[in-house]
Design a protein around this nucleic acid. Structure first.
Lengths: 389, 389
DNA sequence: GCGAATATTTAACTTCTTCAAGTATTGATT
DNA sequence: AATCAATACTTGAAGAAGTTAAATATTCGC
């Protein structure tokens, strides 16, 4: 993380304080005793850790509303997050657009903004990020000093700890210290993370992954990616590669993939692959993905078969994740899932066939993803940088 | 872990002490300063943590042999493990045999023993484990009181923390509290772990996986399995399933697998699948695996092709591991690798083709595995239970 | 109003760690 | 040979973080 200003006061960094803050943030209002049990601390320790968090305005006590147990006893005063204590900007950088959001401490989106991106040059991107930030700050109704952090996400090989973009294929960047540069421009504390990993982090802390020791998020679109949380932590990959579900080989007789492999999931179920196949099957060389979806929905058997095969390939990829790391649950999402109805059952069928034994018990959530979610993911990483040391 | 006797004194459980002991155990002799840097502690903390470990005889100081830095300065007195401070029994249970070893604190095998297993009944296995333990203890040349712990490993679904065998396919066991039962018989502190995970733990602490934040071990044989270490910890799988590389789908047109899937790695490269294919290709319905290997080595093209295809399937599975979790290194081993020469190059070729980008940089060690290694894995888990809380 | 049950707080104490200063041991320099 | 600089290790005081045990708070059921 890179600071724009010199000091950046935050919550206490002591282990117990961090644990308490994280648990309240992700697991909603909880009483101190429940926290103590959950975190393996004494309740005295929770009381002590909570006080400064309350004093600093990050947490507050809820009125004791509901009874806890069955019988008597003093009712709990659950701890809850003050969502408006601090706000976070999240920016997702795509090839042709910047998408920005402002989120509160609970990662609720408060406002959004966009800017087109025409020039992939570093300087041009920095300028646009600065403008987008100004737009978001300008439209912010509250105290602007409560926005001190900004998260960026983009696809590619990113070093989160140093804020370095090692390689971005679509921007043609190599070794750009994006975190430092944006921190200088905006004066905010900046985090940078891979887009899929950021989305996974958001889902892990604020979505369906809450409380899961291990968790996977699969995104379906032009690319097919996957973020993994194992043993409670995001998987990074020793060589910067992890979660590349799109390049698992699932069909020895499948098409060659641009990655050099054969029968990769992405070469069967990526948007480009689907369009290409649909063009072949219909004989229409200018067919678009939207038209292909429309034809399939209209009952065009040849085109439906393309989606069926794609869904099966994705299901195999997801089963591979379940068989290898055994996550508690898996969320499947992404732009590609606008055509959700064409995929859903084939993904499930293929997953259930290929998942080994109890791995098939892993619940699958298949749902489309609003595009702002990507920017929210970046904001979620920024929130994590506040909470964790 | 289950204790046979009431108390079982061990090294101090404080975080720093555990960290120091683990680091010295796995990373050989190290000076205190180096440890401090490595573990993020002050050198004072290391000194204090090391003293009781030395007093209890677990560690000792080496004579300052070699100069550390380039110039002047007091030479270091590296800390090393006293390998003969304590010994550990490891037992691997297979369908027809028990394999036992005695290891020292550095997981060096000191002696081995075997017993045939004719009856899969729980009571019969307990008796044989008891006899094997007696054999090993009887032949032990040193102070028998230095053997206080025993590790068991077997394939199947095992709950390490409770010592429960949830399901063992080859013994037809369900929910057998093996840890407790063996502890009662032997009076030793017992750990139970899945065989592949145990082997992975051994390799992680005492083999090629030392120092790796993430690491994978693939075993090739009748079954094809995989143990994973991610973020420094063994992956367990939320539903008890993890590392099932044998049931990744790599060939949509491949054979049906006994697991219900299609084109699984194991249905192409498992020993049974290889034998079946070789029988078809040679027209000899009683061909054995050894004969198939001999034919392939002799240049029989049809049989060679079976091994080629198997190697490719394994390579795809390994690439899936590299693409998904990005381990620092991967070790490939197992009985099946007696035919190492027939597999090696095909595994590598397929891996390199299918590994995505930098994931291909992950070093692959392909080597056969002495059968005692499985028992050593069980002993290694037992050693871990001494060191960790 | 009383006692049982549960939640939270307080205060004394324990444990672990760091900090700062000192000791130990060596090679290089004079 | 004496001294200095460099590095490794140790010591003791001080601090941080957590625990236990006892006190306090608040409710329900009688």
């Amino acid at each position: 993380m890179f600071r724009g200003s010199d000091t950046l006061a935050g919550p206490p960094a002591a282990p117990a304080a961090t644990a308490v803050f994280t648990a309240v943030l992700t697991e909603g209002p909880v009483s101190r005793v429940a926290l103590a049990r959950r975190l393996g601390l004494s309740s005295a320790a929770v009381t002590k850790a909570a006080r400064p968090l309350i004093d600093l305005g990050y947490l507050h006590e809820l009125a004791a509303t509901e009874r806890t147990g069955p019988g008597a006893g003093r009712p709990a005063s659950p701890l809850a997050v003050r969502a408006d204590r601090e706000f976070f900007i999240g920016v997702k950088i795509t090839a042709d657009e910047l998408i920005g959001v402002v989120c509160d401490l609970r990662a609720q989106v408060r406002s959004t903004a966009r800017r087109p991106l025409t020039d992939p040059d570093v300087e041009a991107v920095l300028i646009e990020v600065g403008r987008l930030t100004d737009d978001l700050l300008g439209a912010f109704p509250g105290d602007r000093a409560r926005i001190r952090r900004l998260g960026l996400s983009l696809s590619g090989d990113i070093d989160r700890t140093t804020g370095l973009v090692r390689y971005s294929p679509f921007l043609h960047w190599r070794d750009v210290p994006l975190g430092r540069l944006v921190a200088q421009r905006t004066g905010l504390a900046v985090t940078v993370e891979n887009d899929v990993k950021a989305l996974t982090a958001a889902e892990h802390w604020f979505g369906e992954g809450v409380g899961a020791e291990s968790f996977a998020l699969v995104t379906v679109g032009t690319g097919i990616g996957c973020g993994l949380v194992v043993n409670g932590r995001l998987v990074s990959g020793s060589y910067g590669v992890a979660g590349e579900i799109g390049h698992l080989a699932v069909d020895a007789t499948g098409p060659d993939c641009h990655c050099g492999g054969r029968g990769c999931v992405e070469s069967i179920a990526g948007t480009d692959a689907i369009v290409a196949q649909a063009r072949v099957r219909t004989g229409r060389p200018d067919l678009t993905i939207d038209e292909a979806v429309a034809l399939a929905r209209g009952g065009h058997e040849q085109v439906r078969a393309v989606f069926t095969r794609a869904g099966s390939a994705i299901g195999c990829g997801i089963a591979a994740v379940a068989n290898l790391v055994g996550p508690t649950r898996i969320v499947v999402s992404g732009e590609g899932l606008a055509a959700y109805d064409l995929f859903d059952s084939h993904i499930r069928t293929s997953f259930e066939r290929q998942a080994f034994g109890a791995a098939a018990r892993c619940p699958l959530s298949i749902r489309p993803l609003p595009f702002e979610e990507w920017a929210r993911g970046a904001a979620a990483v920024s929130i994590q940088s506040l909470v964790l040391p």
